[in-house]
Design a protein around this nucleic acid. Structure first.
Lengths: 338, 338
DNA sequence: TTGAAAGCGCTAACAT
DNA sequence: ATGTTAGCGCTTTCAA
């Protein structure tokens, strides 16, 4: 049986009220009893029953975070970031996977049932009628990460995806590339935004856009590496080969680099590469790969801070939108590992 | 304000008891009222206050899982596995990162405070006085994953780490390798166990052990790839080069393969490789890499089932130890991607 | 400085 | 088939 306030009270011949006060740091208790209580509580290894406390106070000091899947390192970064910004305020975090959105509604119900003080949702898909209804009827603060739901009220923290494409492209242009290929991602809104950024960077620099240098690399078949490799081979067989390549993921970029080496190209003399995601393990393989970092950690931190503000009793009721800027991570380029 | 039992009761002129019964599926209610209640509850979007329910029943239907870090895909797999096995029993899962054990105690306190019905702990380090104390005083079922704590009572689910080394080595032997190198991992108990398995497999097959073919590859400096690459170069410069290489991680193995190709060796004709971890993205790069899979998902499932048994009211009070067998994933070997 | 009473929302165990 | 009473462990409020 866990130790309760009542138990400590009985042992020390005090009322449980006094114990409660001491343990929460109220000041209207004599130093003497305070010391006694603290010591006994420690000895007995008292842990307050948070369930009971929450029922009484209406605050659980738990925030809920729903991610599409566990074990994706990007979502892990987000979770870490959220934790980091809320823990010092005494909040805990419950992380639930939505199985790529399939179980999103159930998880939301679960977390709301558990009375979380704020709900953070990392979503891939756009809109959902469910969300709209939810955000109308619900008093629990809602924070959307990554994608906003059309028509849903709630705050939003996201990556400026267009910048991801823009920065990558600008980097290559800065290195002197003129014919830039894009191994582009899926036709989701994220994929499209990055693509738009790529196009914008080209036109900002007054460079021509070459449709034949855009390759889809997110089909379901084959590994990412292979899709990069195959896509690059196709590009190299065509006329007018690229002198710069950007890819939707780092592993795709590695594939394209290998294909280029296979064709006898020299990196970086005749062709340059940039990935996205900044997956360090992958970027630090045989040829160091520069990459545009999607800062999951910062995303999480910002979202966490927003959740705090909304959950606090400060009466802050508004919602806000914040975009996090992606960051280029440059890596030295050497021909072969030494 | 969220809807409460009392609200529905007032609206329908019933007692909250009746509402409670209907919503929990008790049978001693007339079909008529049952229908009325169900409908109104749905309309109002009633969500039971789990906090209150838990306080009353003493069960939270939440399990806690502590992992060293979020975003490591292995731990993600474990979490998925746990979820999968407990969700159908109505349990939810709270996942907390321990920042590589640094905040282990605080997270444990937090979760116990939250009255989780069972606590699963993925740990890297051995022993800890804290654990021993905990397991003695605590009534909450404890399940350790990966590493057991010396002297701690609680169930244990782990990988048979010795088999990881054994299987990898046996695989190479089966392919005809006689001089097998090991790019070994850190000098933790896991690293040592795998190493022991490697040695055992050699001696089972009557092959000589060559100490000069064992290389440390888990130092802190340089990427895993680089450590594999450099380690392999050293081996190839030495006399009596290996004809089979096993590595503590897949990325290390890729590094060793590259170094070998650089030296003009042919894979698999003159040398064969096997990794561990079965990181699919990495294994399916230019040269498909066979790897010993550490089945995080199965680990999680087993741990989840054990947690269910221990948390259930079945009165099961014992503890058990289970070892999960690692599994070799063979991949076809081609010289270069086509 | 200490404590008694009341109640958060729910349900187990009993009436009716 | 429906409702009453009591209480889970805690904290808010107010009194001693």
């Amino acid at each position: 049986m866990p130790v309760r306030l009542k138990d400590i009270a009985a042992e020390l011949n005090l009322s449980k009220m006094t114990i409660s006060k001491v343990l929460r740091g109220q000041t209207d208790v004599s130093e003497h009893t305070k010391a006694r209580v603290l010591q006994r509580a420690r000895e007995l290894n008292y842990r307050p029953n948070t369930t009971a406390r929450s029922l009484r106070t209406g605050q659980t000091f738990i925030m809920g975070l729903i991610v599409p899947s566990m074990g994706d390192s990007h979502f892990g970064d987000v979770a870490q970031g959220v934790m980091q910004s809320i823990r010092s305020a005494g909040y805990g975090l419950v992380v639930c996977p939505s199985q790529d959105e399939e179980e999103l509604e159930q998880q939301i119900d679960l977390l709301l049932s558990r009375q979380v003080d704020a709900l953070l949702i990392v979503s891939l898909e756009e809109s959902a009628a469910f969300m709209e209804r939810l955000s109308k009827e619900q008093t629990t603060p809602l924070i959307f990460i990554n994608r906003r739901f059309a028509g849903a009220a709630g705050s939003f923290v996201g990556i400026d995806e267009e910048q991801v494409g823009h920065i990558a492209c600008k980097h290559l242009i800065g290195l002197g590339s003129k014919r830039i290929a894009y191994l582009r991602g899926p036709h989701t809104s994220i994929g499209d935004l990055r693509y738009a950024g790529f196009r914008a960077a080209l036109s900002d620099a007054g460079l021509a856009f070459h449709p034949e240098l855009v390759v889809d690399a997110m089909g379901a078949e084959g590994s990412e590496y292979r899709r990069g490799f195959d896509g690059m081979e196709r590009l190299l067989k065509g006329r007018g080969r690229p002198d710069g390549v950007m890819a939707y993921s780092d592993m795709i970029a590695v594939g394209t680099m290998d294909a280029s080496l296979n064709h006898g190209l020299r990196i970086p003399e005749s062709i340059r590469f940039v990935g996205s995601g900044n997956d360090v393990k992958v970027c630090e393989m045989r040829i160091p790969l520069s990459s545009v970092a999607i800062q999951g950690h910062e995303l999480g931190q910002k979202a966490g801070r927003m959740a705090l503000r909304m959950a606090g009793k400060s009466g802050f009721k508004g919602t806000r939108k914040v975009l996090v800027m992606p960051q280029l991570v440059e890596r030295g380029i050497r021909l072969r590992p030494r």
